[in-house]
């Protein structure tokens, strides 16, 4: 059986990991290679690196980061943040990324999804979607630019649309939950799981062990992404996997 994936997400700016990752045994808390190697050892199934550099000039250092990490860490790497063109995708794949996540650019230029999928295969095109609930219309809406700009795009139909355009995987962040540690937005992922047939990675809200089993047992998602609970050592990947096993979720 295919295992459910547990995915730590690392924010990178200027070639350094931001939002302090504080494992006890790290000698350099900002070094992407050392942190990635540590997560590999802990049993992470995949890593997501999000480039939060403010300028294009600084983004170039991300290529370096991917090159360095992929020389020493042998698991799937997804890179996102500021990807706007087929050339961006190509550079990241060439540097060693396995998948590239497109977010705002997919909204601004949906054909980028198709172009990327045709050129490199659907499997390496991840569309990242930031989603917020609108209580008035009782619908989810897509946000862009790191969640700062609201669009009038309804999220579930957008998910279907990007899959039609060639997305091989969806990384969907529930913004209402993000940072709350109150659990994933189960109803969002239930709707998505019924709407599309590509792998879905749930993101936003992971705080305790049962949050992971809830999302896997109640919605058809393939992976769960988290940042701070892992970075600050509140939970280890091993804790999460042991717990999931007990609950009957297949993990590696």
């Amino acid at each position: 059986m295919l295992a459910k994936r547990i995915i730590p997400c690392l924010d990178v700016a200027d070639g350094r990991v931001k939002k302090g990752v504080n494992f006890v045994n790290l000698t350099d808390v900002g070094d992407p290679v050392e942190i990635a190697a540590e997560y590999q050892k802990q049993g992470a199934d995949e890593l997501v690196f999000l480039d939060i550099s403010a300028t294009n000039e600084k983004r170039k250092t991300m290529i370096d980061v991917v090159e360095q990490v992929s020389k020493q860490v042998f698991m799937p790497l997804t890179i996102g943040g500021g990807v706007t063109s087929v050339e961006d995708i190509q550079k990241l794949l060439k540097a060693g990324a396995d998948k590239v996540a497109i977010n705002s650019a997919a909204v601004n230029d949906p054909d980028l999804i198709t172009e990327g999928a045709k050129k490199f295969g659907n499997q390496c095109i991840v569309v990242a979607i930031d989603v917020k609930y609108d209580p008035e219309s009782k619908q989810y809406f897509v946000y862009t630019h790191g969640g700062q700009q609201k669009t009038d795009i309804e999220a579930i139909s957008w998910a279907k649309e990007v899959v039609k355009k060639g997305a091989g995987e969806l990384l969907v962040t529930g913004m209402d939950q993000d940072g709350t540690k109150d659990g994933f937005n189960i109803s969002l992922y239930q709707q998505l799981g019924e709407a599309v047939k590509v792998p879905i990675i749930a993101s936003g809200g992971a705080g305790k062990l049962s949050d992971f089993s809830d999302v896997f047992l109640q919605a058809n998602v393939d992976g769960a992404l988290a940042a701070s609970v892992f970075h600050y050592g509140e939970l280890t990947i091993d804790d999460v996997k042991s717990y999931l096993k007990q609950k009957g979720v297949v993990v590696r």
């Binding site: 295992a3 659907n122 499997q123 091989g168 047939k197 393939d222």
Partner: peptide
């Protein structure tokens, strides 16, 4: 089952 098979299998 989703196709492609994407992920870790035993």
């Amino acid at each position: 089952l989703k196709v492609p098979q994407m992920g870790w299998n035993e």
